[in-house]
Design a protein around this nucleic acid. Structure first.
Length: 339
DNA sequence: AAAAAATTCAACCGCTCTACT
DNA sequence: AAGTAGAGCGGTTGAATTTTT
């Protein structure tokens, strides 16, 4: 036997609220507050269930609701918060004064998510969508992965084609068994592919540089590589031109002595409207133009992790996030900074 | 101008969490 | 400890609106 419904279905009105109902609800709450949603509709003379009243109040009638279009700053904030909080819309809404979780959720699903998909970014992981790469050919050309045992993976990956030779080369280097330090692979993959994707999408330009190879033979050398990457990805001009921030990466998988020095670019502001229209993007790794068919989840999305820019959150937010994701998983710079 | 397709967003549903008994 | 009720959250729906053909 399931739980009793929150209200009697008989005689309960559903659907859009009328101005009269709105007025009744507002009048009642202004007079008595909203202590008990279950009894509120009856007391207020509304033929609605308490749940419906609460929703109407919190999402529409509340006096501090900010209506209208989202600003660029708000959109950036949503993307950044979503990158660490996921679909915790109420938690995101708590950091955007005047915005409701429902509003943010709708905005994400109808605008931002599509934009990210169009750019080849997985909106779930905020990572490049590796399902758009022809990993089967990559794997077939890699001795380690071209064994019969691995062949089933190739068939699983399907017939997607990779149209960007730079990304193909990058991906090939990533799965190469000759790399000495596996810890640096995800970092560089994210750094480089992200960088390429974002620049190309924003500027509609072909790839502009060689990808640096991460094969440090010592910690010192590794540090130099990392420092170079930090400089590269924190280039203020590039960040300004492209509208992206680059933030520290979180590595859940492997304790890494370089952790805290490694940086990976994370999309924070895919807000350039000129790049959001389907016909505008020249991003060479996009095959489906953001259609529904494109929305397959990235099968390897859990390999790539990232984090938000600490400066954008105050200390309270920082602690709240730690509570949300748990201290044990929290390996980011806030720990380092004794946040 | 009309029809079809796509998009938006308010509202609902079902579930989980928490407080209380 | 177990059961119940209420509140809140995230996913989904579908009507209204806008855009495209």
């Amino acid at each position: 036997m399931g739980r009793a419904p929150c209200c009697d279905k008989d005689g309960i009105k559903k659907g859009p609220w009328t101005p009269e109902e709105d007025q009744k609800l507002v009048d009642y709450i202004q007079k008595h507050g909203y202590g008990n949603w279950r009894t509120l509709p009856k007391n207020a003379g509304l033929q609605r269930c308490g749940k419906s009243c609460r929703l109407r109040w919190t999402n529409y009638l509340r006096p501090d609701i900010k209506r209208g279009k989202f600003s660029m700053e708000e959109e950036e904030m949503i993307i950044q918060l979503h990158s660490i909080l996921g679909n915790k819309w109420s938690a995101i809404a708590a950091r955007l004064p005047g915005r409701t979780d429902n509003e943010i959720k709708n905005y994400w699903n109808t605008r931002i998510r599509k934009r990210l998909l169009h750019m080849g970014i997985d909106p779930v992981t905020h990572s490049p969508r590796l399902d758009l790469l022809d990993l089967s050919s990559i794997l077939n050309n890699t001795p380690l992965y071209s064994s019969p045992q691995m062949s089933h993976l190739s068939s699983f990956l399907g017939p997607q084609t990779l149209v960007n030779p730079e990304i193909l080369r990058l991906a090939s280097s990533i799965v190469s068994p000759h790399v000495e330090n596996p810890n640096c692979l995800p970092q560089n993959f994210q750094q480089n592919q992200y960088h390429q994707l974002l620049i190309q999408d924003q500027l509609h330009a072909p790839p502009i540089q060689e990808f640096p190879t991460c094969v440090p033979s010592s910690n010192n050398e590794a540090s130099q590589v990392m420092e170079r990457n930090v400089d590269e990805y924190r280039d203020p001009l590039a960040a300004y031109n492209n509208g992206y921030y680059y933030v520290p990466e979180k590595n859940y998988e492997t304790p890494n002595p370089l952790q805290g020095n490694s940086f990976a670019p994370v999309l924070s502001a895919a807000t350039n409207s000129s790049s959001s229209t389907p016909g505008n993007s020249n991003s060479p790794c996009i095959t489906g133009g953001g259609s529904i068919e494109d929305e397959r989840e990235s099968y390897c999305s859990n390999l790539l992790n990232y984090e938000i820019i600490p400066d954008l959150l105050d200390m309270n937010s920082c602690n709240e996030i730690r509570q949300l994701i748990g201290d044990s998983e929290y390996l980011g710079p806030w720990n380092i900074q004794s946040c």
